[in-house]
Structure formats: structure tokens, C-alpha cells
Design a protein around this nucleic acid. Structure first.
Lengths: 198, 198
DNA sequence: GGTGCGGTTCACGCGGTCTTGAACTATATG
DNA sequence: CATATAGTTCAAGACCGCGTGAACCGCACC
């Protein structure tokens, strides 16, 4: 389950060094983190990737893998992999505190941009694949001979449909991007006074 | 209970190639059917639901459950359930051929409408859920006291983000609908004399 | 060197989803 | 009524993705 972080020492000797409270998440934190988890899962990523990002974002300050592991009740290995993915996608950042040796992780604020980016890529390749399949089918059908022309027409219509769906999708991604551009302004962290940036 | 008479179109097309030539799918059919399966799965439905619809659409004439079972190599029970779902969503139609006792199933042409509809429903309830969670978290956090105001602001920003995403989504669904409206015109079957009601 | 700890990798197992196949219902036919 | 065939339901099992936890790596400090 959890633990494994604790294996070495007795629980009593918690280093006062880092974590203020080793306790669980505050209820409101738990709810918010869970919400992010749901969203991210909905978009086709792993739920825990969302939870990790959510925690990092809510806390605002960089956390260590160990802290994340404890707060979200994940395994050491799991946290490692999740962090790797998130960093790879550029939605979290690995930071080093001056005279500390451990890595800490901080949330980038453009989660959304990353999501749209990855989704876009996924979508695009997927859609092209579909269209390729459909035209392949059409080629075969035409070459085969003996295929009633009205069936060919059906195939053709499917291809048209696919194209239209593709267009709608691209449009969505674009608008989502733009729409989110506005959000990022408000969303972007940093100076409290800074508003309406970009 | 449900179902309509198959006031079938031109008998000529029916007998030419239609007779239970129950071999395997033609290669081009297989490819096309598979493509539909992929699409539908991508949208969060079962792959086989897409394959069944695709087959029915390509064939253009109503097929029996047995034929579907054979062509797509599915189990009897599975076909039954798949057909039930598809019919329930209104993307296939149950038809009865005059002096025959078995049910046959024909593809409606508005697969896309159904997809956007179901997706819309799913999306909508999902998004509202998320927003409810976030405001709940915010309520709790405010009530708890001792929560740094800047954390409250983070929560708030997440809620804003959620709203924006929601807006983008609705927009997508709407445009997709419209976009597809055009498609349906071309997509709608003209080859067979079909009683289009709805 | 050795010990401790942060970090990574990966085989295994759990949990959830989809499919199967058999039991069962319903309906027609002689 | 017996028989056959279409259709439905559901428990059992195949399948697959994810997270776990142990083994492993590497660095720091003693």
C-alpha cells in the first residue's frame, strides 16, 4: 500500500526537516485533487497523473516524491513513473532547492495546453489512420470488381463523413486552445497583482 | 414491440448478391468495418457496436442477427446485446420482412447524431459533476479556516478553468452537430426507397 | 569501503471491462 | 404436444491496463 518510505526508521523520528504535517490531505484538498484526477482521466490519461498535478498545483510549492507518495497514498515506483510522464509532457518541473539534494516537483500552469497538445496529436494520427483505411477499402473494392456501385457510394460517403468529423475535431481543438488562452492569463501563477496578462 | 415493416426498395438489388452468400467478409468490407469499429471505440463505445453498425450500413439492406454473427464472427449472445444497445440509441432499426418471421436490422444513417448526442449527455453530466466538486472543495476550504488565501485563489482558478473547458466542449458539440448536418444531407441514403421518418 | 536514501525499472497481481456459451423464454410448425 | 429456431439473460472467464513492491542503481556522507 503505502509505506516503504517508512521502512527504515521508526515512525516517531520523523524528520522535522520537510513536511509540516505528515497527515492526510485536508478534505477540501482531497476533493479538488480528485476532481482533477477525474478530468484528466476523462481526457484519456491516467487518473493519478491528474491527481499528482492537482496536488502540486494546489500546494503551489515544489514537493518531493516522498511527499506526493504520502499525500496521495501511492507507491514509490508509481510516483516515479507518474512524475516522469508529467515532466516529459512539460506540465511539471523538476527543481532543485539550493542546498538540498532531493528533487522537488512544481506544477506548470499550462496543464490545459499540454492536454490539448497531446490530444491533438493523438486525434490527428488517429483520424488520418481512419481515412487511410477507408480509401484503402475503396481501392480494394474498386479493384475487386463485381461490387455494386451503390456500395461503392456508401463507402465514399463514409469517407466524407470521416473528413467532416476531422474538421469538427480540429476546430474544437483550435477553439479550445484559444479559449484557454484567456484562461491561462488568469490561471497563470506568479504575482497576485498581475491580472489580465496576455 | 418496436420495429417497422421493411417496405424494402427495389427487389432486384435484394436478390442479386444478397442471398445468404454467407462467406467471409470481402477484404474491403472488413477494412471499412474495422475502421468504423475504431472510430466508435475512440468515442467511448464498444468497438463491436461500431463494427455492427458499419456492416449494416455497408450492406445497405437489413441483416438478421444470425448473419451478423457469422460475418463478424461474434457470439449469439453478444450480437443480441449489441443490437439492443444500437437500437436503443436509435442508430439501427428493427424491421420485419413481410412474410418472414425473423427480425432484421437496418442502419440508420445518423450515427453521428447519436454519437454527438450521447457524448453530449455524458460530457454535460461529467462537467457539472466536476464543477460541483470544485465548489464543494471551495466551500469546505473557506469554512475550515486557516487556509492561506492564496490557496483559495488557486482553487478558484481551477473552477474558472473548468468553466472554460466546459464552454469549449459545448461549442465543439454544437459545431460538430452543425457541421454534420451538412454531411447528413449527402450521407442520407438515396439509393433505396427508404421511408425516412423521425 | 559501507550504509542510507532518493530514484528507476519491471514482473506480477488485482480490478474492471467485454465476450462467450449455455440455460432459458418465446414463437412458429407439423 | 414435440420439435426447431429466433432471441435474451447472465455467470464464468478471457483480456488488459494500472499500480504495487522488490530489486536494483547511484550518489552522498561517514
Amino acid at each position: 500500500m503505502k509505506g516503504y518510505l517508512w521502512t527504515g526508521g521508526d515512525p516517531g523520528s520523523q524528520k522535522s526537516l520537510a513536511p509540516p504535517q505528515t497527515g492526510r490531505l485536508a478534505p477540501w484538498e482531497a476533493i479538488a485533487v480528485e476532481a482533477v484526477g477525474n478530468v484528466i482521466e476523462f481526457w484519456g490519461f491516467k487518473r493519478n497523473q491528474g491527481r499528482v498535478w492537482g496536488l502540486l498545483y494546489l500546494r503551489g510549492e515544489p514537493l518531493t516524491a516522498g511527499e506526493i507518495e504520502r499525500e496521495l497514498d501511492l507507491s514509490k515506483g508509481g510516483v516515479s513513473m507518474l512524475l516522469r510522464d508529467l515532466e516529459h509532457w512539460g506540465v511539471i518541473q523538476r527543481v532543485r532547492v539550493p542546498q538540498d539534494t532531493v528533487w522537488r516537483y512544481a506544477a506548470e500552469t499550462d496543464l490545459v495546453r499540454m492536454v490539448t497538445h497531446v490530444v491533438e496529436e493523438r486525434e490527428a494520427s488517429f483520424v488520418t489512420r481512419i481515412r487511410a483505411d477507408l480509401s484503402e477499402a475503396r481501392r480494394l473494392a474498386e479493384g475487386a470488381g463485381g461490387v455494386p456501385p451503390e456500395k461503392l457510394r456508401r463507402l465514399e460517403r463514409m469517407a466524407v463523413l470521416a473528413e467532416h468529423v476531422e474538421r469538427a475535431l480540429r476546430l474544437f481543438i483550435k477553439t479550445s486552445r484559444l479559449d484557454v488562452g484567456g484562461v491561462l492569463g488568469a490561471f497563470r501563477d506568479g504575482a497576485l497583482a498581475r491580472k489580465g496578462e496576455r
